[in-house]
Computed example of a mutant assay.
Amino acid sequence: AGLGVASMASAEPVSNSYSLVGSDTLQDAANAITNGTTLTGSLVRVTSTNKTLGSFDAFGSTAIQTKQGGPFFGRPAGSGAGVTALRASITGAAYSGNKGVPARTITGQVDIARSSSGPGTNANANGLLAYIPFGRDAVGFAYKGGDSSWATLSPAQLKSIYECSTTSVGGVAVN
C-alpha cells in the first residue's frame, strides 16, 4: 500500500513580511523591487527589517499562498481583484479569486494591492485603504510643418484627434 501527499507547487515567494497582489500592469516593477533583480549587475532587493516582501503575479497557478502557514487562495488577477483581496484580508470576509478555487478566509494574507486605477468608490476618509500613486501616464506629440495651431494643441484637442473626431489641424489632414 502506498500513500501520496501532494501540495500545490509555488515558484513564487512565500513572504515573511508584506505581500503584494493585483494588477499585471504594475507587477514587473513591483517584482523587481520586492523579489529582486540583477539588471544592474549585483542583486538589488528591498527588505523590511531583514524580512522579505513577496509580489505575486496576476496570472499563473490558480491558487497562491502568500505567507508561511497561510491558506492557499484564488490568485487575485487584476486591479479590482487585488483591492478585493486586500479588503478581505483586512475585514475577514471570504475571498475566492479565480474560478474553481473555493472561497477562503484570508485575514492578514494580503498587505498591498497593486492597482493601476484610482480609488474610485474605494476612497475612504478614515484611511483604511490608502492609494499611493506609483507612476503617471503622459502623452506627447511631435509635428512637422503646419501653422502655429500645431504648437498649441490642448489636451481636449489631442483627445479629439486620438478619437478620430478631428481630421485636420490648421488645414493639414490628420490620419
Rank of each mutant, 00 (worst) to 15 (best):
A1P: 01
D28N: 05
T34E: 04
G145R: 07
G100Q: 12
S42C: 02
P155A: 15
L20H: 06
N50V: 01
N126G: 03
A123Y: 14
Y143R: 07
S117W: 09
F134R: 04
G80N: 15
A173W: 05
G82W: 14
V44C: 06
G69I: 02
S89R: 05
W150L: 14
T152Q: 11
S17C: 08
R104C: 00
P155Y: 09
G118S: 08
L39Y: 09
S61H: 06
G135T: 08
S96Q: 11
K99H: 00
D57P: 14
W150G: 11
G80K: 09
P76L: 05
S168Q: 12
G69T: 01
A138C: 01
L53R: 01
N16F: 13
S165Q: 15
Y131T: 08
V44M: 12
P76V: 04
V5T: 09
E12D: 05
G41Q: 03
T167Y: 00
V5E: 10
S89C: 03
F134L: 14
L86I: 06
T38I: 07
D147E: 09
A125H: 05
I33D: 03
A30P: 00
G97W: 14
D137F: 13
G92A: 08
I132D: 07
K144T: 12
E163V: 04
S154N: 09
D57S: 15
L129S: 03
T25C: 02
L53I: 13
I132H: 03
S149R: 13
L153H: 12
M8E: 13
S89Q: 03
A9Q: 10
E12H: 02
R87H: 10
A151I: 05
T84A: 11
S96L: 01
G140F: 06
K159F: 02
S89T: 07
T166K: 06
I33V: 15
I64W: 08
T105Y: 00
P76R: 07
T105G: 02
R45W: 04
A63T: 07
A94H: 02
I33N: 03
Q27L: 07
N98Q: 15
T38W: 04
T167M: 01
G60Y: 09
R104Q: 15
G127H: 06
R87Y: 09
G74R: 07
V83M: 11
F72V: 00
S149K: 10
K144V: 12
Q157W: 06
Y143M: 01
G171F: 02
V101L: 07
G135M: 09
K144W: 09
V14S: 08
G41M: 04
G54V: 06
I112W: 14
L43T: 12
T121I: 13
A30M: 13
A125S: 15
I33M: 12
A113R: 05
S160G: 09
A32I: 01
S19F: 15
I33G: 00
S23W: 13
A32E: 05
G120L: 14
N50G: 11
G22W: 13
W150F: 15
G118H: 08
A173V: 11
K159Y: 02
V172N: 05
A94F: 00
R87Q: 09
A1Y: 04
I161V: 14
D24R: 12
A113F: 11
G118K: 03
A151D: 13
Q68T: 15
R136F: 03
